[in-house]
Structure formats: structure tokens, C-alpha cells
């Protein structure tokens, strides 16, 4: 990694700051997974890593390689886009699965399935 020493100081400070901050956000998200108590709360923790964490680390990467190669580097944006677009799909599936399970097991505190309007009229 010797070529990283070519990085000017101002860029190094920004890149380091963003990387460390992004990693810290991802770490806090992981801590949240342990600390939260219910499944639904745990749905919120990983989104920290996939929004704030990815954003900052990718920005750091863009700045780092743009300065090193003295040209615009943009393909990290694709990482951000793909992560932001794909994780909600997983989380929504997990959330629905949890909701279904809790309803079947008749856990308290879970909103009941709303009946379709037709059934209501029949009653």
C-alpha cells in the first residue's frame, strides 16, 4: 500500500475521517443488532450500515482514488445505488415473514391482518 503515501495531506485527512466515521456507523449498527430486543427493532439496525456507512466509505474511496489517479472516479456510486436498492427488498421480506409468524403464533402487540373489504360487507 505504499502508493497511498502519495496522497496529499488534505485528502488523507478527509479520506481517513470518512472511512473511520463510516466504519464507526457500521459498527454501531452491528451493536444495535445485539442491543435491540425485538425482531422488528433489529430491522432498523443494519440500515445504518447500508445507508450512512456505505455512503461515507464509498465517498472516501471516490476521493482517495480520484486524487491518486488525478481523474474523476465514479463507479463507487454504483455500489451505493445497488446496496440502497437491494437491501430494502431483503428487509421487507424478513419483516413480512416475521409479521406472518407472529400472527400465526398469535403474539401480542402485533397488528392483525386487515380483512379485505368484501368480507366486511358480508358480515
Amino acid at each position: 500500500m505504499s502508493h497511498l503515501t502519495d496522497l496529499p495531506v488534505w485528502a488523507a485527512v478527509i479520506v481517513c475521517g470518512l472511512t473511520v466515521l463510516g466504519a464507526a456507523v457500521a459498527l454501531i449498527g452491528s451493536v444495535g443488532l445485539i442491543r435491540f430486543t425485538s425482531f422488528y427493532e433489529r430491522l432498523h439496525a443494519p440500515t445504518l450500515a447500508t445507508s450512512g456507512g456505505v455512503l461515507m466509505i464509498c465517498t472516501a474511496s471516490i476521493i482517495c482514488f480520484a486524487v491518486l489517479q488525478s481523474r474523476w472516479v465514479f463507479h463507487e456510486i454504483l455500489i451505493i445505488v445497488f446496496v440502497v436498492v437491494t437491501t430494502p427488498v431483503t428487509l421487507m421480506l424478513l419483516g413480512q415473514a416475521a409479521l406472518y409468524r407472529d400472527r400465526v403464533e398469535e403474539q401480542r402487540g402485533v397488528p392483525l391482518k386487515q380483512r379485505p373489504p368484501r368480507e366486511e360487507q358480508a358480515e
Binding site: G29, T47, G52, V84, P88, M92, G95, Q96
Partner: peptide, 12 residues
Amino acid sequence: CVMTATPGTAWL
């Protein structure tokens, strides 16, 4: 996507 990507809200 927006609501799930935002920490704090989860689309169910």
C-alpha cells in the same frame, strides 16, 4: 425503498 433505506422506519 426510501422508507426501508432510512433507518428508523421499516416497511412491513
